[in-house]
Amino acid sequence: MTTHPPQATRAGRGLTVADAMEPFDYQITDDSSIDRADDILRSADLDYLLVRDHNGRCEGLVTRTSLQPFLTHLWYAERTAISATTHQRGPFAWPTMGLRLAAIAMRIRHLAVWPVVDDDGYLLGVITADRATGLLAAAPA
């Protein structure tokens, strides 16, 4: 019979997304206008905003870059909802997910930031690629 050491004692594998997760307070509803999202991004000097649906569940995130094509026509930006844009959508990370797995998924999907949600889809925070990489590098081998 083969036994395996507890996950926490295996080299760096005990780290989870919860260990790397950071709070993020800036959110916008998916029915808000592109113009409103741009105002928030500019005034708070942010690169991205988390998007939630009308029930408060995480729907994804929108970046300044993804909004740029819509901002060339002011009338379009004022009348178009975030839900009509192409923005990062799920699946999302969850707190119990292994940090190594999350880092791999982020690298494959080319994500700099990834929302972390609970079992019901409500936002808990975000994980950044830089933070995940830093924690994994500092983990004992």
Rank of each mutant, 00 (worst) to 15 (best):
R13Y: 12
V117R: 01
L136A: 13
L50A: 07
Y26C: 11
T85Y: 00
A137H: 11
P115M: 07
P23K: 05
G60M: 05
D31G: 02
R52K: 15
L71R: 15
R57H: 13
W75R: 15
E59S: 15
Q27S: 08
E59H: 07
D39W: 05
V17A: 04
G60T: 11
L15Q: 06
Y122N: 10
A77I: 08
A141S: 11
G56Y: 07
A105V: 05
R64C: 12
G60D: 06
M97P: 03
R107S: 14
Q68R: 11
A81D: 06
A102I: 01
L135K: 09
R57P: 01
P23V: 05
D130C: 06
T2S: 14
T133R: 12
D38S: 13
A8P: 00
R131Q: 11
V113F: 03
H54I: 06
D119Q: 10
L15C: 07
H110V: 08
A129M: 13
Y48E: 04
R100G: 09
S32H: 11
M97C: 06
S43C: 03
D19Q: 04
N55L: 14
R100M: 04
V17M: 02
A141I: 08
V116M: 08
M106V: 08
R57C: 12
A139I: 13
P69V: 04
D130L: 09
L50H: 05
A84Q: 09
A18H: 04
P95I: 00
S83W: 03
L111M: 11
S43M: 13
H87S: 11
D130V: 10
R36F: 02
S33T: 15
H110L: 13
G14Q: 02
R10P: 01
A129Y: 12
I28C: 02
P6E: 03
V51Y: 01
R109H: 13
A102D: 00
Q7E: 08
M106S: 07
L50I: 14
D53C: 06
T29H: 08
Q88W: 07
G134D: 14
T9G: 00
P140K: 14
Y122S: 06
V113C: 12
R42H: 08
L71H: 10
V51P: 00
V62E: 04
T72C: 09
I82K: 01
F92L: 06
A132G: 11
V126D: 04
A18E: 06
R109F: 01
A77Y: 02
D19T: 04
A137G: 03
D39F: 04
L136M: 13
Y26E: 10
R131L: 14
A112F: 11
D47G: 15
P140D: 08
G56D: 05
R36M: 04
R100F: 01
A102G: 00
G56V: 07
Q7R: 15
R42L: 14
L135H: 04
R13E: 13
L67C: 05
V116C: 01
L50N: 01
P95G: 00
N55K: 07
G12M: 05
I108E: 14
T2P: 06
P140I: 09
P5C: 02
L50M: 14
L101Y: 02
I127P: 00
A102T: 00
L111G: 05
A105Y: 02
I82F: 04
T72M: 13
L124W: 00
P95T: 07
I108V: 15
A44G: 03
L136R: 05
A18V: 01
S66Q: 14
P95Q: 10
